[in-house]
């Protein structure tokens, strides 16, 4: 029986899809069977981020409408044999599915994997509600900016209202240098304001853009520091005790050396 985790944020553009793709990949690399599901109907993107856009035949709405069986719609990842994508429909809108239908679909997915990660649409409307309806746990992605943190606060309130328990937080796109000079809120600032548990910190990293350009997921690159941070979050999701260390601006000497041994840079 899979654990179902929804990745959401409230505000758009903070890194939900990137985080879903990287966490899905990281969990698969740890040996788990994973399905990543794109719940952003009408604005799907998880397929392009993972480089699987050319392999889509059926989508989530096709499964719900009975046009195909669930397994026919699951797209196998290019790199990880135990990672599958269930794409969203692109030509329909969010009202094409009901909350009950999504819950039923998610329950079907539970038999197919160890982890089901759901990439939620931005906003607090029906698309978001559908995305968290079947979740056992919610992960909120935010950046250390006023707009993203404000929206995250709203989402936390809604998660409580929908009895989803307390979500855990990823602080994304942190710039340690700016934090040091007092020009960016620190992780502690954000945690103090939102009052929820942290599951990981991801630094701002240009490599995310180049990886996305190519449809590769950064975590596949074992020399990537950001990839290792995602792997640490995946371990925490799987229940491992992995301490969260503060992010330094430049890789330490040790990290650079271990990077060389991992065959990167």
């Amino acid at each position: 029986m899979a654990k179902v985790i929804t990745v959401t944020s409230g505000k758009g553009g903070v890194g939900k899809t990137t985080s879903t793709a990287n966490l899905g990949t990281a969990l698969a690399m740890l040996g788990y069977k994973v399905v990543v599901m794109d719940a952003d109907i009408g604005l799907r993107n998880l397929d392009v981020v993972m480089g699987l856009e050319n392999r889509i035949v059926y989508d989530l709405v096709d499964v719900i409408e009975g046009n195909c069986r669930l397994r026919q719609a699951l797209i196998k990842d290019k790199h990880q044999s135990e990672l599958y994508l269930l794409p969203a429909a692109q030509t329909k809108d969010k009202d094409a599915v009901s909350q009950e239908e999504i819950i039923e679909l998610v329950d079907q997915l539970r038999d197919e994997a160890d982890y089901v990660l759901i990439d939620s649409p931005a906003g607090i409307e029906s698309g978001f509600k559908n995305a968290i309806a079947g979740a056992d746990e919610v992960i909120i992605v935010t950046t250390p900016e006023v707009s993203a943190v404000r929206d995250a606060d709203r989402i936390i309130g809604l998660c409580e209202a929908y009895d989803k328990g307390q979500p855990r937080l990823i602080v994304n796109r942190l710039r340690p240098k700016m934090v040091k000079s007092g020009e960016m809120m620190s992780v502690d600032d954000v945690l103090q304001i939102l009052a929820i548990d942290l599951i990981g910190i991801i630094p701002e990293d240009e490599d995310v853009i180049t990886a996305t350009n190519k449809g590769e997921v950064l975590t596949l690159d074992k020399s990537s520091r950001t990839g290792r941070y995602y792997t640490d979050i995946a371990r925490r999701l799987a229940g491992e005790e992995v301490p969260i260390e503060p992010i330094e601006d430049n890789p330490t000497l040790f990290e650079r050396i271990s990077g060389i041994f991992r065959g990167g840079r």
Binding site: V146, R150, R154, M185, I193
Partner: peptide, 23 residues
């Protein structure tokens, strides 16, 4: 301005706006 830091301003503004949002 630099020594004051915009992060502190962000934190204070957020705390104020979240009060109205929450309560």
């Amino acid at each position: 301005r630099r020594s004051k830091g915009s992060a502190g301003v962000a934190r204070d503004r957020l705390l104020t706006v979240l009060v109205s949002d929450r309560v």
